[in-house]
Structures are given as C-alpha cells and as structure tokens.
Design a protein around this nucleic acid. Structure first.
Length: 276
DNA sequence: GCGGATCAC
DNA sequence: TATGGTGATCCGC
C-alpha cells in the first residue's frame, strides 16, 4: 500500500504542477426554473404547493407527492431547471458578440448580470465564480436561491471550499457512487483525498483519477459555445441543412469509417462520431 | 460494439 | 422518502 500511495502521490504532484487558476469561470443557474415561471405567470400559485410534471396523452405523470397536512409549505418537487437559460457558462472578459465589458470585479459583474436577468425575466438566478467549471457549478449551488459565491483563484481557497463538502454535491457523483464511497467511510471531499491510495486499488483508472481530480478541485476551463438565438423555424431548418451538407462533405474528405470529425460552424464546434 | 448502470435535469 | 422520463456517458462484457 505504501508503494501504491507513493505512486498516487507522484501523480498528485504532477496534477498540482499543472493546476490552472488563471481562468475565471461563471456558472449561472436559474432558481427553481419551471416553478418560478409558473408563479410569475400566475401569481395565485405563489401561495400554493407546486409540483413539476408532464401530462402526455396516454401517460399522465404528475410528480406531486404531498404529505397530508402539508399544504402551506409550498414544496417544490423535482426542482429541475432545464431551460435555455440554465447552465450558461460564461467566461469573464469574453469576446463573444453580445458580450458586454464590465469595468469591475467578477463579483460585481455577476451581480449585474443577475440583476439584468431579473429585470428582463422577473426570475432570479444564482451564480458561482471559480477557476474551473466544476467548481463554478458547485459554487452556484452554495447560495441558492438568488445568491452567488466565489472561490478565489488560489489553491488554498479551493481546498478550503472542498474541505467539508459532501461528495454528493459534486457533479457526476450520484446516489450510487455516494453509497459506495460511504461504505468506505468517505463522505467529504477531503476524505476522498485521504483515501486516494485505497481508491486507486478499488476503482477503474478513469474512476479514481476522476476522484482525485475532484478531491484536488481540478476541473476543465473549456467552455461549450451554443448558437445565438435562432428565432424562426425557417432559419433553424436552413441551419440544419447547412450542417448536414458540411458534415457530408467532411465525411467524404476524411473517409467514412469510424472517425470523429470536428465541424466548426457559426463559431460552434461539433464533434461527430460516425459508425464504423 | 452492445446493453445495463449511473447521472443530470 | 416505494415518484418519472429522457438523453448522455461510463463501464463491463
């Protein structure tokens, strides 16, 4: 085990040396989006419990589950926030069209962004500011709803944030992984780090490497770009045609078998995997 | 490469 | 905490 541990620690040193704190990533997340929209559009609902669900023709799904006598506390179940506004990652000092330069700190800029969102939509958002996307996402949760949180771009600030953070809060760690780790006595991110050697024996390479990244607060600074708004069906359709045409051309050029082709269109990268 | 498990929303 | 559905990704075979 000692030799295992020293091998893992060699990797830790490498990872530390390549730690990148130079980006400022902002994750903005709408608060209880579905429920908030309904309450905005029908203020009568503000007094009432709200459940989010769907109603298909032959399948009626209501995700409501109320305990008797619990009508006044307005439980919001399945607090999903799937929407165009959700999960918008932005990078400070961004060079996208429609971007605005704020002559101020990231925190003030993000306050301004959230303020404008609320002015425009009557909906609140929370935000996280951090050196990478994983941390930014977790930060946006910290002061939800209608709040924000920043991790300073310093190693110790990152580790301090993670110290007592339950691993369940980490994106990618769900119910099952939580249970497995709990069985090993691992609940917090610092415990995840302490058990790094053990984890390297019990889990696949990819898994324990991921655990190690998490426990060190390492993450990507790469951002996905989305399309700018495409309003009409005609424009959407014509963009679709353009995509297909370019893809076909690209495949022709590369040879059709089992390749991953990267298309750049409208400043958006597409990775297309083709069947072998 | 396929199917099942896991996860985010 | 006996609930959904969907689409993506991972993982083992």
């Amino acid at each position: 085990m000692e030799t295992i541990k020293s091998q893992v620690d060699k990797l830790v040193i490498e990872l530390e040396q390549s730690r990148n704190l130079s980006s400022t990533i902002v994750h903005i997340d709408m608060d209880a989006f579905y429920a908030a929209v309904e309450m905005r559009d029908n203020p009568e609902l503000k007094e009432k419990p709200i459940a989010v669900g769907s109603m298909n023709k032959d399948d009626m799904n209501m995700s409501a589950k109320f305990n008797e006598g619990e009508v006044s506390s307005s439980p919001v179940l399945f607090e999903d926030s799937t929407s165009p506004m959700d999960s918008n990652l932005q990078q400070s000092g961004l060079s996208v069209e429609n971007s605005v330069v704020f002559g101020t700190s990231a925190e003030e800029a993000v306050k301004e962004i959230r303020f404008r969102i609320e002015q425009k939509t009557q909906l609140t958002a929370s935000a996280g500011i951090a050196p990478n996307t994983m941390l930014a996402k977790m930060c946006s949760d910290r002061n939800k709803p209608n709040g924000q949180y920043r991790i300073a771009p310093e190693r110790l600030a990152v580790l301090e944030f993670l110290k007592d953070l339950p691993i369940r809060k980490v994106p990618g760690i769900g119910k099952v992984t939580e249970k497995m780790l709990k069985a090993l006595g691992i609940v917090t991110c610092s415990e995840l780090y302490q058990q790094r050697a053990l984890l390297s024996l019990l889990f696949s390479e990819i898994s324990w490497r991921n655990f190690l990244d998490i426990s060190l607060g390492l993450g990507s600074t790469h951002l996905e770009k989305t399309f700018s708004e495409i309003k009409t069906a005609e424009d959407q359709y014509s963009l679709c045609r353009e995509l297909c045409r370019d893809l076909a051309q690209e495949l022709q050029k590369e040879g059709l078998k089992g390749k991953t082709v990267t298309l750049k269109l409208k400043n958006v990268n597409f990775e297309v995997k083709t069947r072998a």
